[in-house]
Each structure stands twice: as C-alpha cells, then as structure tokens.
Write a protein that binds this DNA or RNA. Structure first.
Lengths: 356, 356
DNA sequence: AGCAGTGGGACACTTTCTGTCCCGCCAGGC
DNA sequence: GCCTGGCGGGACAGAAAGTGTCCCACTGCT
C-alpha cells in the first residue's frame, strides 16, 4: 500500500480535488498563457471554480499571472512533471508499455494516463508527448513524413514554439481527404515545418481517387517527386483510423461499408483496411505512401488513442510495419485485452463486453 | 520531491485534514472503543467535527462502531500503521535516531513524530511505543525496575491489556515523592505488573528524606530488599526530569533552586542533578536506586519528550549510563542542536533562541 | 480603432459546515 | 434490578464556504 493509496483512504475527497487541479495544471501547460474563460470552456469546470482553483495554485507558486493569462511557473513545471510521473506509477503504465511492446513486437510504446474518449485533455497530452518524442529523435537533415488526422493535427498544434535548430523536411505522406482543412496531411506538414523551423513540401493530390486515374496522377512530376521523397523519409508519423471512421471520411456508401465490416475490417492506415490480425482485407486505390514503402523507413511512429480505437490500433500494429506506438491508457489496456483474447480464440469476437 | 510533498503542494488544504484525521485515528487506537464526546474533550476538535470525521472514516471502513463507541477496524490498524511510517519518513526520523544514538553513544534511540509540549497525543504515542518496546525486550523471569513520573505513568496506562505470558517482576526503583499517587514509582510498578501479568514489590519509603535518616531507612529490611532487587534488575525504565520541575516536586526553596541553576543544573535522574555535560552538580540524599547502580543493569531505558525537556534529556543521556532512549521529535531535534552547540562552545548558552 | 481575451470586483444564491441541543439506548456498577 | 454515564443518532438554526453570473477596466494584437 503506497503513499497515495493510504492518503486516498483517509482523505477520500482528495481524489476530486487532485484530479481537478491536475487537469487544470495540464491545461495551463498546454494552452500557455491562458485566461480563466478559455479554461472554463476547454475543461468541464465552471468559471468560478476555475478562478478559485487558480487562486490556490497561484498562492502555491505553481502558476504565474501575466497580462495575457496564467502560465506555469518554473516550479509549477517541476511539480506537474512529478504529477505526471505519479499518474504513470499509479496506473503502472511502464509495465503496460513493456507488455505491449513485447506482444506487438514494437521497439517502443509510450502510454499517457487516461482515455481520450472520456477526456479531451488526454488527447492533448498524447499530442504533447508525441511532439516531445519527435523533438528527441529528429536529427539535422532528416525527412519527416506525416499523414492526416485529428490526432496528428493536434500534435502539430501542441508542438512547442521554441526554435528547433535542426533542419527537417516535412513531407505529407498522403493526399487530401475530405473537407476539413485542419486535418489534411498537407496542413499538418506545413504546421510542423513551421514549428520545427524546417521546410516542407506539399502533395497536391486527392487521397481517394478512381482507380483508373491513379497512374495518371502518379505520373505528374511534382506529385511523383513528393511521394518519392516520403519514401525516403527517416521518420514516418502516422495516425490510426477506425475502419468505420475512415469509410465515412472516404464517403463509402452503405453497401461498401457493410462489405468492409463483413470482411472483419477494424483499422485503417495508408488506404488499407486491416482485420484484427493485421491482414489486409480491403485496399483503396489511393495516392501517397503505400504499406510496402514502410519497409524502407527506419522509424515508423503510430499515434492514436481512446479505447474506441483499440481494435484499429491492434490491427495496424499487427501489420508488423510499425516501430513505435504512442497511445493512451484506455486504448493500450484494451488493446492488450483484445490481443490476449484473439490469440486464444483465434478470431474476432464481440466487442461490447469490453466497455466496462 | 516525494509524493507527499507534491500533493501538499497542489492540495495545501490536505495538511489540515490529514493531521486532523491522523490525530483522530491515533486517539481511537489509544482509547480503544470510545465515544465522540470523549474524543472531543481529549483532542482539540469540536464534537460536530469529530462526528463528521468519524462518519467519513467509518465510510472508509477504517473504524467500526460498537455499542460502546468506535474502535479501529482491522484495516484501520493497517492504514494507521502505514500513516505512522509515513510520518516517520516525512520527518526523516530514522536519520535523527541514528545521529542521536551516535552522538550520545546509545545503543538505540526511538523517536515518535511530533512534540509532547504542543500535542498531548504525542506523549501518548511515546508511551505506547515505550510499552511496545518493553513487550519486545522483556523475557521470562526478568526484573523490571521503574521510576516515577507522568510519562512513565502513561506508559503503564497505555500498556495493552492482552495477556503477556512472561513472568516479570516489577520493582519500583525510587521512593515516594509528592502527593500525586498516579505518578509514584510504586503505583506505576503495580500498574505495569498488572498489565504484564507479573508480580510486583513495593518500596515503602519516601524518596526525599533528611540526610541523617537515610542510613536508618536503608537498614529497614523490607526497604533494603526491594532496593537490592532493583539493583539486580535486567531492565530499568526511567523518566527524565527537568531540574526546575524536580526541584519543585521536591519542594526546594527558592534559594536552593537558584543555587541549582547557578551550578548549571538542567536535568535530574535518581536524585542527582546534572549539567548539560552530564556531570553531577547536586546530589540529594534519597532513597532508591543510585547512579552507580546503573552500571550493573544490562538495559537502561530513558523515556522523555517535549522540547522543553531537551536540556534535561541531553544532561541525563550525557552521563553515559543509558542504553536506550525513547523520546519525541521535538525533543530529539533540539537535543541534537544543543549537543552540536555545546560541543563547539564548550558550555551552556542561552536557550531562548532555540524556541523557533 | 476595434476586438478578443485578460484579471479582478461584486453580489446574491446555494451548499456545506458547525455548534448545540435533545433523545433513546445499552452496559457496567452498585 | 435499577441507575447512571457514556454511547450514537436526529435535528436545526446560524455561520461559513463555495458557486454562478454579472460588470468593468485593461492590454496586446490586427
């Protein structure tokens, strides 16, 4: 029985307060100098409460108040990082990371506490951790290929603004898909390049295209060049999509979607749909990096969280093409349960009972 | 920065709650099945608050409510013992114990957190720890000699009632002193013998006596026998008195008291007054065990706490006659500071500045 | 100059806490 | 076998703390 457990036992109300302030501190860390109303709308805490809590945290010297809002003080950063460690310890995430890396033959797994499905703050944390990881591995002259998606968009946003003195070329690995400009690979590449202080290329092509036009598009020099560049990437950062979500984004009709589901598709990446064993069950004619290209890339980093994405994560990681996975606790634990189950039963079973 | 420190930082109000409940739990442990009004009068917490807190602790399963009041549940005992450990760790008492043992050449030092001067609960804790220590060292057939004093009286009271199947003879090491029956060595010996399930002897003699009568009294067979028995004790448990307090109990007049102070007397034991170096500066003609008798006793245990007794403790332990000291944090830390200072300056200095 | 976002003041309203009763119950002592 | 002292629980008003919701003046950016 460790310290925290004992404390929670004799001071049960500690949990609420602790969680609230931890959330608040993380939000302050993420949003930089930020005001109480922004925090209120971002978190699920009323304005007055945010205010009271900030007063306390300020009195403790953990945050500082500038003209444009509050931000973490130096000490606040230290305390918060200790809180991060505590959360990791509390949920024993290091053990889950190792187990998951072993089970899925990954070089490294990074898990942030929480569940993106339940708490948007967790997705932000995941994005920040991913950004920090990128900073730690990117070297001068590296080529970084990125895909689209909401998670990766957040990674780009939460990249710290401080200058990063390594010249990195960011190249989109996939064409454009859907109408939301924020989550396009192109946009993310630009944003990341800005934050990294590097250069970028744009892939002026749609992601989903009729099969008959694919070859024609790929002959286009500027497109061909960008794709070729992405094949030579040193690091590939890609999101993980659920089969349903990606079918929707691609505007699949009901029939095709039903077909996908019938084939056992649960995850998507690079225009391929995979079943839980990581086998390709459906292929789209698409523009951008393809699965076999990944074999030449030294470091393939998959990012995605939320327990609703667990099947998709399991599927994509099971392809054996990824080296690193950054996810959250909700997803990771479910992935491990699913993995154990599919190994025993040798197939996909009903999902529902896992939503406890 | 450990868990508790971090938590106290982001949840500063934790301290109050934690201390209150810890105090409450300790009181429940000490007073066995006890009601809320008794707790109220014993601690400095209002009835309503005690009630609310007890409700919470009960909801947590840490205490149980019987017909005669609340008592610790099995789990409560476990949690409370973990809290004890935490308190010790928090104040790094193990380190102080070792430092003090080394500085004063003691076999063992046991320190309980807190300060008896500020919190009567600490004195109870000290008494309980002493009782537990006694239980752990007393062997079948042992002779236990005890002196008087408020602290030792509390040790006897807080001795657990459970049968202790080792035959121990408890013998008072000092004669009667003053009017308070509870703190006489005789009373304490009886009480302890009852709790231990052993036998006892009584010393029917006054402690302070005119010098001319001492020899006469010592010729009395029943008195002589008891004193002889105490000389052969296996364990001696004795309190530590401040020079001022013991002068008052002996009814010294102002002149004698001034004389004592002028000689640098700060501590008292066995009718001797010591200066800070442990040198005898005043001797009373008294009935009971004398200082030189201690040389033959295998285990001399000194008990006393509260920072106001620090000088006295330093003095008595400096005689080099004690093997074990049980005290509290307030006293221990001050003793160590005084020890360091007197070693440097080679003498006694003003005490006041130490009351921070 | 306008705007969007900031902190702080204010204040009424709600919830929680707290002090202080009273009551009926039960066990241990006479 | 009754008495009494200590027990828990109910109750309730008043105090204190917390909360929702305004307004206002300021500032940095566009």
């Amino acid at each position: 029985m460790d310290t925290l457990t004992v404390l929670q036992r004799i001071v049960p109300e500690l949990k609420d307060v602790l969680e609230r302030r931890y959330t608040l501190l993380r939000a302050v860390r993420t949003f930089g100098p930020v005001g109480r109303r922004t925090l209120t709308s971002e978190l699920n805490i009323s304005e007055r409460t945010v205010r009271s809590e900030l007063d306390i945290l300020r009195a403790q010297g953990l945050i500082e108040t500038g003209s444009s809002g509050v931000r973490l003080s130096r000490e606040g950063e230290i305390v918060l990082s200790r809180l991060d460690e505590m959360a990791r310890k509390l949920y024993d995430l290091a053990a889950v990371e190792q187990a998951m890396a072993a089970a899925l033959k990954l070089q490294r797994v990074i898990i942030v506490p929480g569940d993106s499905d339940a708490d948007p703050g967790v997705k932000r944390d995941m994005a920040q951790v991913t950004a920090a990881y990128l900073r730690s591995i990117l070297r001068d002259g590296d080529i970084l290929a990125v895909t689209g998606g909401t998670t990766l968009a957040q990674v780009a946003e939460s990249f710290p603004g401080e200058s990063f003195n390594r010249r990195v070329t960011v190249v989109p690995a996939r064409g454009g898909l859907g109408e939301d400009i924020k989550i396009q690979a192109n946009t993310i590449a630009v944003r990341l390049a800005e934050k990294l202080g590097g250069s970028y290329r744009l892939l002026h092509a749609p992601e989903d295209v009729l099969p008959c036009y694919v070859e024609q598009i790929l002959r286009e020099p500027r497109i061909r060049d960008v794709i070729a560049l992405s094949r030579r990437a040193d690091v590939l950062l890609h999101g993980i999509g659920t089969a349903e979500e990606m079918a929707r984004r691609r505007g699949f009709d009901d029939e095709t979607t039903m077909d996908l589901i019938a084939r056992g598709a649960v995850g998507e990446a690079f225009g391929y749909y995979f079943n839980a064993q990581g086998e390709i069950v459906y292929t789209t004619a698409s523009v951008g990096l393809r699965l076999h290209d990944l074999a030449n890339i030294a470091r393939v980093v998959a990012v995605g969280g939320g327990r609703s994405k667990a099947w998709a994560i399991l599927a994509v990681l099971s392809t054996g093409r990824c080296h690193v996975c950054i996810t959250d606790e909700g997803a990771a634990r479910k992935v491990m349960r699913l993995k154990a189950r599919t190994q025993i039963e040798g197939g996909v079973t009903d999902d529902d009972q896992d939503w406890d």
